[in-house]
């Protein structure tokens, strides 16, 4: 029994080694924040399609996908990046969970001479070639404008955010607040809660806000989980349409809530484009081409404001 197990392990190790040696191909690694959120799956889908195109063109390229199993552990993510250096990936795409914690690993990739492409989120380093991201600040300002207009420039609103401590979601909250204060001074933000992307928690928090502030006029939710939870809370309280909801991200559930008029607008990123462009850039870099004249070049992949009207066009 033990021997058989040992043999199995050896066989597995051997097969890994041989594929690593035999493959005279190129490997592009993609490491996202998690493997569950639809956002990252779209990044992955975009990347896969770009790779498929390259393969169809006769290149021997493959994509390696990895992500921590929970949303909280940036140390695990950093070690995944380091593993890809060890595995001698030919280009690495990373969506850093934590700007500080991932910086050393990203620098290590760059210093090892491996093309380094960031996806979605910046890290605290300049040592990378290019980043494809949603300008979260710009998107948050758009969201503020949308909600402000929906409310006619006055009323009380609450924010349901995902993670305190994540650069992306904190920017979405911070720039939203700044824009609100500037453009709609009569709108009061009564509070914020962090639901860790858990829909049930977002639902509970939204209920509590409606109870705390009976004349609440609107919600701003900062990611997919928060948006779904908030939308359902408003729907169940029978206040669909009365309380305006502006969300972030897109999924079947979000789509459904927009269709039913519970959510008035949601900021849809273009994660597919991030993954797709990321792979194309990686291929260029592998082949010694340049993306831009400068290093650490920023490409904004933009957001689309999804509403009931344009819902059909959103993919």
């Amino acid at each position: 029994m033990k021997k058989a197990l040992l043999f199995l392990v050896l066989a597995m190790l051997l097969s890994i080694c041989t594929t690593a040696i035999a493959a005279d191909s190129y490997t592009i690694a993609l490491i996202t924040m998690d493997s569950m959120d639809q956002h990252w799956l779209k990044v992955k889908a975009g990347a896969e399609e770009a790779v498929a195109e390259l393969v169809a063109a006769g290149n021997d390229v493959k994509l390696v996908f990895d992500a921590p199993s929970t949303k909280v552990d940036s140390v695990v993510q950093a070690s995944m990046v380091e593993n890809q250096i060890t595995n001698k990936a030919d280009a690495i795409m990373v969506a850093p969970m934590d700007a500080e914690a991932l910086a050393p690993a990203i620098e290590a990739v760059y210093d090892a001479g491996i093309p380094m492409i960031l996806i979605d989120t910046l890290a605290n380093t300049k040592k990378f070639q290019v980043i494809y991201q949603t300008d979260n600040g710009a998107a948050a300002r758009t969201a503020a404008q949308e909600l402000g207009k929906l409310l006619g420039g006055k009323g009380k609103i609450a924010i349901i955010n995902a993670q305190a401590g994540s650069q992306t979601t904190m920017t979405r909250e911070g720039d939203f607040r700044d824009e609100m204060a500037k453009a709609f001074p009569d709108i009061e933000i009564v509070g914020v809660q962090y639901c860790d992307g858990d829909k049930q928690k977002a639902l509970n928090y939204a209920e509590d806000f409606m109870m705390q502030t009976p004349d609440l006029a609107g919600f701003y939710a900062c990611n997919e989980g928060s948006t779904v939870g908030t939308g359902n809370a408003v729907d169940q309280a029978g206040k669909a349409g009365t309380i305006k909801v502006v969300g972030f991200d897109f999924s079947d559930e979000v789509k459904d809530l927009v269709e039913r008029g519970v959510i008035q607008a949601t900021m849809v990123q273009n994660p597919w484009v991030m993954g797709n462009e990321g792979v194309k850039a990686a291929w260029k870099l592998i082949n010694g081409e340049k993306i831009a004249d400068e290093e650490a070049f920023v490409v904004d992949t933009g957001v689309t404001v999804a509403t009931k009207e344009n819902l059909k066009d959103i993919k």
Partner: peptide
């Protein structure tokens, strides 16, 4: 049933 969504991350 509450969030009309069976999420693989639920209950973490």
């Amino acid at each position: 049933a509450n969030v009309i969504s069976a999420a693989p991350t639920a209950g973490d």
